[in-house]
Design a protein around this nucleic acid. Structure first.
Lengths: 193, 193
DNA sequence: ACCTGAACACCGTTCAAGT
DNA sequence: ACCTGAACACCGTTCAAGT
């Protein structure tokens, strides 16, 4: 698509949401090396520098993508009174979000300034929940978060092999259940979502 | 250092080990973006294409680095009869190796073809050991490997902050102990190294 | 406010040529 | 066998200029 020069009419210009959507497409298609500012601009029919007005530089773009992709994780049912169920739901959603764009978590780790506010919110919520069911909330937060990150990166390393990715996803669920059952041996019931 | 043209006298040419050592220096200095074939060649006083004769392309370089850095992990005491102690020693050594060059594990993940044979040997050995002490060796291998990878990447994300890195390393030890004690509740004794 | 072209300082990799 | 220069097709980012 070729755009007119000069000031665009409102809503017709290069919109932030368009940029992010196209960026995610590029990330999923190109196996990690595919998302560059220049390729993104080309796909949008725009010069690379145009992007700087909407998302800033590379870090800004990644941070915006992180916010958008992981935002839904926090829209998790609250399960009052059943902390373990909420932890399981929270981590499952996070892992699902990671799995939907496996290259994103890798891109973020290779540019740690891009860790967004949302990722902090997730770990904070997790810590709060863990405080209710264990005397070592920090250690278990580390275990659960690092394990989820590691599993997510394993997913990215499959490089689009659907079969392999599916096997890894099934194993993550088993591992999570195993871990949570070890956390509170006297557990009962399942996640409430 | 300026090198003579033409065929070098034996031992004086550009040696593989020199390349790998300098590459690790660049990786540690440059915070991850520092290791490029061109920068590496410049540091060695050589043209970029010269490297292709010794380590191949980027994947070849990373694979060679992976082999070199993680090779020592397998030189682990064998602890016959005490699988849990050997697991703890093996993972501790792996995490230490990762922590010595935190950017390497990140670089490898962003180029999964670079996973070297040594990393496979480590997970294989781990699986064998787990078979001796749990009925779910695959799940626990996933948990332990992914957790170690995730922790290693968290280390890379500190970007040279020594204080923070030290705190993470201490927490990894606690987490590992916690996990292994949950694996076999009836455990006794400590690692034999 | 938003988009542009030109420029700068980089990349990995291939190829044909030198010794 | 090993190293070279030149070339190709890329990068991110800054700057000054257009509307």
């Amino acid at each position: 698509m070729i755009r007119a020069r000069g000031r665009p009419v409102p809503g017709e210009g290069l919109m932030r949401e368009d940029i992010l959507t196209t960026a995610l497409t590029l990330l999923d298609e190109g196996g990690g090396q595919g998302l560059t500012l220049r390729a993104l601009a080309a796909r949008l029919g725009v010069t690379p520098m145009s992007l700087y007005h909407h998302v800033g530089d590379q870090v800004g773009l990644l941070r915006a993508l992180s916010d958008r992709v992981y935002a839904e994780v926090m829209k998790c049912p609250k399960c009052p009174g059943d902390a373990q169920a909420e932890i399981q739901a929270l981590l499952t959603r996070f892992y699902e979000a990671v799995g939907h764009h496996p290259q994103l978590i890798l891109a973020i780790f290779s540019m740690p300034q891009a860790f967004s506010g949302v990722t902090r919110q997730i770990t904070d919520r997790l810590t709060t929940l863990l405080t209710q069911i264990t005397t070592d909330p920090i250690i278990w937060r580390d275990i659960l978060v690092d394990h989820t990150h590691g599993s997510g990166l394993a997913l990215a390393a499959t490089q689009g092999d659907r079969m392999q990715a599916q096997a890894l996803q099934a194993r993550y669920q088993q591992a999570l259940t195993q871990l949570l059952s070890r956390l509170t041996p006297s557990s009962k019931g399942s996640p409430c979502s």
